[in-house]
Deep mutational scan, measured.
Amino acid sequence: KPRTPFTTAQLLALERKFRQKQYLSIAERAEFSSSLSLTETQVKIWFQNRRAKAKR
């Protein structure tokens, strides 16, 4: 499955949200993903990867 190329605007929004909160609830994820027109899975995986990156 090819990787999702996120737009610059989407990445900025994701990073901004991540700075506020490293873990999203299911409801927050649903709302946030639709506002960015991404799937919930894409947002979930992005947050997982971003948390892993923050640990390094």
Rank of each mutant, 00 (worst) to 15 (best):
R29A: 15
K17S: 01
T8E: 15
T4F: 12
A30K: 04
Y23D: 12
T7I: 08
R16W: 12
R50V: 05
R51L: 08
T41R: 06
L11W: 00
L11F: 13
R3F: 13
A27Y: 02
K44D: 15
R19D: 14
R56T: 13
P2Q: 10
K44G: 10
S37G: 15
T4M: 07
T41E: 13
L24R: 01
T39I: 06
W46Q: 01
P5W: 02
E28N: 05
A13C: 14
W46P: 03
E40F: 07
R3I: 14
S35I: 08
I45Q: 09
Q22P: 15
S35W: 06
F47Q: 03
R3W: 03
S33F: 00
L14P: 15
K1E: 01
R51H: 12
T41Q: 09
Y23I: 12
N49P: 00
P5S: 11
Q22N: 11
S35Y: 09
Q10T: 09
L38S: 05
A54H: 11
L36Q: 06
R16I: 07
Y23A: 11
Q10C: 02
A27S: 14
K21R: 10
S34Q: 14
A54E: 14
L14S: 02
E31F: 06
S33R: 01
R50Q: 14
K21V: 13
F47T: 04
Q20K: 01
S25V: 00
R16K: 13
E31W: 07
K53Y: 12
T7H: 03
L36T: 00
R19I: 12
P2F: 10
E40H: 00
E40R: 01
S37R: 08
L11A: 05
W46V: 00
T4E: 14
K53I: 13
T4L: 07
A13D: 03
R29I: 12
E15L: 06
P5N: 15
F32L: 13
L38T: 04
K55P: 09
E31C: 05
P5I: 12
R19A: 15
A52I: 02
F6Y: 07
S37F: 02
Q48N: 04
Q48T: 06
A9N: 10
Y23Q: 12
R19F: 11
E40T: 04
T39C: 11
R19E: 15
R29W: 09
Q42M: 10
E28Q: 03
L36M: 07
T39F: 03
L14H: 05
K55C: 08
Q42N: 01
F6L: 10
Q42F: 00
S35P: 08
I45E: 15
E15Q: 01
I26L: 14
K21Q: 15
R19K: 14
L38G: 00
F32A: 00
F6Q: 01
T4Y: 09
Q42R: 01
Q42L: 04
R56D: 15
K44F: 04
A27K: 06
Q10S: 03
E40Q: 05
I26H: 12
K1W: 08
T7V: 02
F18E: 00
Q10M: 03
L12W: 10
L14R: 00
E40S: 04
A54C: 13
A30W: 05
S34H: 08
Q10G: 06
T7S: 11
R50C: 05
K55T: 14
N49W: 14
I26S: 09
Q42Y: 08
I26T: 14
L14D: 13
A9G: 11
A13L: 07
T39K: 02
S35C: 08
R3L: 11
E15V: 03
A30V: 11
W46Y: 00
Q48D: 09
F32R: 07
T8R: 04
T7N: 05
S35G: 07
N49H: 07
Q20S: 10
T41I: 15
L12Q: 14
L14A: 00
S33K: 01
T4Q: 07
Q22M: 05
V43S: 01
K17C: 09
L38V: 08
R51W: 00
E28M: 07
A30D: 06
S35F: 06
L11C: 15
E31S: 04
S33W: 03
F47V: 03
S34T: 05
K1D: 15
Y23N: 09
T41H: 10
E15M: 04
L11D: 07
N49I: 10
A54S: 09
R3P: 13
T7A: 02
S33Y: 03
T7F: 02
K53D: 12
E40P: 05
K53W: 06
K1T: 04
W46C: 03
F47W: 09
L11G: 03
N49C: 07
Q42T: 06
Q22K: 09
S25Q: 03
R3D: 15
E28C: 03
S33V: 03
R29E: 14
K55R: 07
A27D: 14
K21E: 11
Q42S: 11
R56C: 09
L12N: 14
Q22H: 06
K21L: 04
V43G: 00
Q48W: 02
E31R: 02
L24Y: 09
I45A: 10
A54Q: 13
R16F: 10
R19H: 14
K1N: 15
K44I: 10
P2I: 14
Q42G: 02
S37A: 07
W46N: 01
N49F: 03
S33I: 04
A27C: 10
I45W: 13
R50G: 00
P5H: 09
A30C: 14
T8Y: 09
L38K: 04
Q48V: 06
R19Q: 13
E28H: 00
P5M: 11
T41G: 09
Q22A: 12
R16S: 15
I45H: 08
R19S: 15
R19P: 00
Q10L: 01
K1I: 09
R51M: 10
K44Q: 11
K17H: 01
T4A: 05
